[in-house]
Structure formats: structure tokens, C-alpha cells
Design a protein around this nucleic acid. Structure first.
Lengths: 379, 379
DNA sequence: CTCCCGTCTGAATCAAGCT
DNA sequence: GAGCTTGATTCAGACGGGA
């Protein structure tokens, strides 16, 4: 649930610190096992969860490139599970812990590969989460398949889910569409791996975390499913990519992490970040966010007069405006929407874009008159 | 196991008819339930399985496009299951039946969407299949999300598995690499839907099957994981796309299908096919080459920061970049293109060339930043 | 003949607010 | 909470007709 809906102010860079001044866990990293640490959070307290759980990679012997160099694979102890049953039990436990702290309309994003994502997805469904989308992160620069025995594993899968089918999660549709050059955002995201200066390295030049995610991935998830001031939880915080993007975008974060090395790296990273200016963080909203203007207002303000003849775009249908704000088209009377639907023999119709004033080249939808009213109201 | 390895000749268009002259089930469609029908096949008899099981879509009420036309959804009885438990039991049964008839080194490909693929994948692992890859079919022309409530569901997932980790499945690595302009074939395949003349229609012009797959998809799978003369099984044969591609490519097929209408359509389709039709050999060269870069990518990658001031070439108009990828110029907000049009009072505008960063002699169109991204993605 | 424009359609878990 | 009203919402590609 966004601050916009609850009516709480979000002028400050970190508005959540105002709203939840008493919540000491905000913008912190909790050290420990994810299930145990999450017990410290109140139930229904986070708006968005991003989880990058262990992938349960079942690597055999070492892998070498054609030039005999050894591939630095992810063979950390935290990625090892004895069996699918053990992995399922682990998955079930952290999903239930996360579920408790999610607000009713919160979103959960989980990323994984074919080693674990099917088990995670099935468990989500078993626990009665509701899947909204699966998203594929297409890697522009994946690791090639050196042995030529499989397809280059060039993607990972992200599942977007809510707590129930009834949830109304934040989805900044209009912002994403503007972001994507006025096309709907699709379920396939083409993004590079986390490399170069973004990749955290230790003093010896070794990568700090084997599977650090690119900030661009989190940027898109937070833009899609959160608003400024929201609380974002990452139960497998690692080196803090989720926190870094949350801070940049004016969201609050909570991280859970077991390894002290990762926590240290994440703290240093987070301290160095300057949040974006709040004015740049406003989300682009489409028509849905605009104030409703009743059709009758056009008559009251004199923009339209009773008795005016309206037509559809092609002139096939016409109707007369009546002083009470209703339309009459032959035997049909009612609202602009109802009469628009009736004359077309359809169930529904948006009267604002269906009905037009004027004729020939001067024909214009009555929605233009509504826009005129809106601009007057702003001034 | 391929004929190449077993040394069997494959000169004839239907070499399998020589090898298995006594196998009456080759190149036929078995009518009936998939589990029962597969009992008629000997164990360890097929080289490749492609399965397109019911997705268990769980659709609610009708869906209409913005123009009020009704979406012709897949609401057939065979796609309905009472519960996840029922779907799991169904999945387990057909997977076991398929497992029995697979040769030890055979490959299994299963396609699905987020509604079912996680359950299928988890069941595959539970039954000790070994996953080689998951592959995403990116649809060039998916159905949009009409209500603007989710990401456009623009892909389906295909799992490639073998019977065990020890299996040595056919994988025509070099053929695929040549096929893909000397690049390794990746796990993301960009292909159009099955439409136009390829889509089977009945006398009334209605689609015969609600979910007919494109031949290009099967073409790629058969090319990757089978050799001429191999036996390809499709336990959910539908209107016979698998059989059609198998016949064209000189493989033998076996199909199982319950619905007589689909069987009739598939028989007619298969009879009309001449093997080795080169027209089916063409691969769809997608937009991969000319990758579209959304404006928001500049923000995600940090090339442009939220709050940056953009101007037109002459400095007459200016706008502020917001973190969600939209612009704000006075009262106008929206995409770079929309806001560019609005400030000029025009209908359309190419925001990439209209908006500039910097000032004076350092002024440069944001298109330069896009070029920078493109060169990074290529590297 | 080509080009342009209108129409149709595809595996889809697709509304929100007020009375 | 049920019921009614308002009115927001689509991309690529195939195809057919007319200029």
C-alpha cells in the first residue's frame, strides 16, 4: 500500500522515517538466519519483497574453459542442500516467514534458475500465493557453454506473486510504459550482468559475492511495484543491491543476511549512496490518477450546451445532449457511456472518447472538453 | 539414440520404416488417453518426446479488448482441473508413462506457462529426470495485457530433460551454431506465434485448435535433439505440429490424442506434407540484431540520472528526467516522445533526437547515450 | 502491380469506486 | 457487502479491399 493511498506525506527523501519513526529495523541489515530474523519484524509491515535465495546448484567436478582456466563457480556452503526435500523445507520456511510480514497488497519477487525456480514456483502455489507474472531476465552477456553440450544458459526466471488472488498490488503501468517508449512492458527483460565497476571486489580484486545482481534489475522491479516511501524487504540481502536501489529511489529497505563479510560490504556500499531528489521520484500516472469530471460539468461550465448534437467518430451514430447531463439517441437515453453502448449494441463504451462535437475536420472527442476543464482546475 | 550412432541407414525419406518394419505404431496417431495409449508402445522405443500438456489456465470471467471485442480464450474442458493436486497427479502419470518408452539417452521437452510449468518442473525433478536447460520462447507478437494490470505475458517456458544425469542426449551443437550465425544457440528463442496460413482453420474459418504451436519451434527442437530416422513422440498431439515437422525432417513420429476433431485435422495435415520441404527450414531471424533500447535503460544503467534537465536543440523547451523513466515539462508528463510532442504542440516527436543533455557546445542528443548502451551490449 | 488503411486476432489466471 | 455506475485499456502481424 503506497503512501499516496494512505495520504501520508512523502516530501522528505526518506518519508518512511517519518511514518515509521519508531521502527528501528527500517534501513538496517538484520544479521542471522532469514526465518529467525524476520520474527523481529511486525506482521504486515512491508510493501515489496525481493528474494534471491540459494539456487541449489548441483555442480559436479570443476569446470574449465577451453583455455584450461578454471571457472569461478558458485560453490559456497550456503548453496548446498542435501536433497530436494531439504530444499523444499527451506523454501517453505522462508516463504511463510516472508508471507507474514507482507502487507495484504504487497508484491513478492523471487529470482532463480532451472535448478530451483520450479520448486520455488510450485511451493508458492502450494502456499496459496498468487502468481501475477513470470519474468525472464535475458542476459546480454551470459557465460557461454564451454563444452557444447547444452544451450547457452542465457536467462534467469523471476516470479512476481501476491499473497492472494484478491490482492491489488502496486503496478506503475503508466510509468513503465513511458519508460519503455510508450509500449507496454513485457515479461522479457534484456539486461547485462553485473560487471565492471558496479561489481563489488575485495582488496585482492576477487568478487565479494558470487551472484551479485545488477542494479538495473532491481531498478525495474522497484519502479514497477513500489512507490516512494514504501518498505522493501530482501531476506537474502547479500551485498545489498536491493538496499542500494531502494535508497537511490527513496524507498526504505530491510535486509537479512547471515554472512558478516557480505554485511560489511553492503554497509559500506549503502553509506556511499546519495538518494535521488524527491521531485524526480514522482511516478508518472495516467488517466487513472486524474480527478473525475462528471459529464454534467461540461454543461454547468458552459463548455457544452443542452441541445448540442454529438456524433461518433465516423458519424454513424448521433445523440442529443439534454440539460440534465443525459443523452438521447432515438429510443435510448442515459449517460454518455450507456447510450454509446446501446447505439452500438455493445455491453460497454467509454463515452468520453466515443462521442464527438463538431463535424468534418473540426470533429473532436468530448474528452477534449474534459481536458479543458482539468487544465482550468489546475490553474 | 540416433541412427547415426547405431549405424542404421537413413537414405530413404522414411528410414524408420526400414528399421522398424514391424512397428505398426510408427507414423500413426493413437487415439485415447495418453497413459493408456502409451502402454501399446514398447519400452525404450523413442528418441525424443515433445509434450504440450494442458496448462490449467484457471480463467475467470470474459476478457474484452479496448475496442470491446471479446478475446477467444482457451476455455476447453481438457484444460480444466479441480485442484493443483489433481493436476500433479495427472502430470505424474503421464510423465511416468513417457519415461518408460524413452530410450536411456532420449530427450524430453515440455512446454508450459507460469500456470503449470513450475509444477511440471518440480515433478520432473521428483521423478529423477535430469534438467539440461530451460528455454524461453519469446513471442514476437504476444497478446497485450488489455487492462494494464501486469506485464505483457510475452513468453512460454520449455524444459529440456533426460531420464538421468548419466544420459548422453543427442545435441547437434555445430548444426545449431551454424544455424545461429556461428554463435552458440542460447536458451532464449525469439519466434512468432502460429498465425496466418500455418494456422489450421475449419470450414467456418475458426481455429481448429486453441493452442497450435508454430512449426519453427518444433523445427528447432528436432534439429537440436534428434537425427534423421529417430522416433519422435508427442503425447498431446493436437493438430499434429510435431508430426508435421518430424515428417518434413525425415524423423518418424507417434502421436497420442483424445479428441477426434484434432486427429482428423492432423491426419489431413500430415498427408499433405512432402518430406524435406525447404520452406520449413527457415529460421526466424528476430530483432536480436537491431535491439530496441527503452529510454528507461539509460536510468537503470546509470548513464542518465533522475533529475537531469534536458533541452531541445535550440534550448526553447526543457524537461526534467524522473526516476521512473518519464519526463516532466511544466504540466506535461509522459514518455520522451509524448512530452516532446506536447511541448511543441505537435502530434508526434522522436524524443531520442529531440531531447539533449548538456548545454552550449557540449549539447548532445540523448540518442548518443543510446548508442553507448548499444555498444556496451555488443561487447 | 503496389501501397495504404481498416479489420481481425492470439494459452489471459486483466477494474475501481460509489451508494 | 452487494449492486450499480463510471470509464480505462492493446501490439504485432496477417489479410482484404480500395486507391
Amino acid at each position: 500500500m503506497s503512501v499516496l493511498r494512505t495520504g501520508v506525506s512523502f516530501a522528505a527523501p526518506h518519508p518512511s522515517s517519518q511514518r515509521d519513526a519508531g521502527a528501528s529495523w527500517l534501513n538496517t541489515i538484520l544479521k542471522g538466519d532469514c526465518v529467525a530474523a524476520l520474527e523481529k519484524l511486525p506482521s504486515k509491515s512491508v510493501d515489496l519483497v525481493f528474494a534471491d535465495p540459494p539456487y541449489n546448484l548441483q555442480l559436479g567436478s570443476d569446470l574449465h574453459r577451453p583455455d584450461q582456466s578454471k571457472v569461478d563457480a558458485c560453490d559456497d556452503h550456503w548453496d548446498q542442500f542435501e536433497s530436494f526435500e531439504a530444499y523444499d523445507a527451506f523454501t517453505r520456511a522462508w516463504l511463510l516467514a516472508v508471507r507474514r510480514v507482507m502487507k495484504p497488497d504487497a508484491s513478492l519477487y523471487v529470482i532463480g534458475s532451472y535448478h530451483n525456480i520450479f520448486r520455488v514456483g510450485a511451493m508458492l502455489q502450494d502456499l496459496e500465493f498468487w502468481i501475477m507474472n513470470d519474468i525472464v531476465w535475458l542476459k546480454s552477456n551470459p557465460m557461454p557453454n564451454f563444452r557444447g553440450k547444452r544451450f547457452t544458459n542465457a536467462h534467469e526466471t523471476i516470479i512476481w506473486a501476491t499473497k492472494s488472488p484478491q490482492a491489488k498490488p502496486t503496478f506503475n503501468y503508466d510509468a513503465l510504459k513511458a519508460f519503455n517508449d510508450d509500449l507496454q512492458m513485457r515479461s522479457d527483460w534484456y539486461l547485462p550482468l553485473c560487471t565492471g565497476s558496479e561489481r563489488l571486489k575485495d582488496a585482492g580484486g576477487q568478487k565479494v559475492h558470487p551472484t551479485q545482481k545488477p542494479e538495473a534489475l532491481l531498478y525495474r522491479i522497484l519502479t514497477a511495484s513500489s512507490n516512494p516511501g514504501d518498505v522493501v524487504l530482501d531476506p537474502f540481502f547479500g551485498t545489498g543491491t536491493t538496499g542500494a536501489v531502494a535508497k537511490k529511489l527513496g524507498r526504505s529497505y530491510v535486509g537479512v543476511e547471515r554472512e558478516q563479510d557480505y554485511i560489511d560490504a553492503a554497509r559500506a556500499r549503502l553509506e556511499a549512496i546519495t538518494p535521488n531528489d524527491p521531485s524526480a521520484l514522482e511516478m508518472h500516472k495516467g488517466k487513472r490518477a486524474e480527478k473525475r469530471i462528471p459529464f454534467g460539468t461540461l454543461l454547468e461550465t458552459g463548455l457544452l450546451e443542452a441541445g448540442t448534437r454529438l456524433t461518433c467518430a465516423k458519424g454513424r451514430h448521433e445523440a442529443i445532449v439534454r440539460a440534465d447531463g443525459s443523452l438521447k439517441a432515438g429510443p435510448h437515453t442515459g449517460s454518455i457511456h450507456k447510450v454509446g453502448a446501446l447505439v452500438q449494441g455493445q455491453d460497454a463504451c467509454n463515452g468520453w472518447t466515443f462521442w464527438h462535437t463538431g463535424s468534418g475536420t473540426k470533429k473532436a472527442p468530448i474528452d477534449d472538453l474534459r481536458k479543458e476543464i482539468r487544465s482550468r482546475l489546475q490553474a
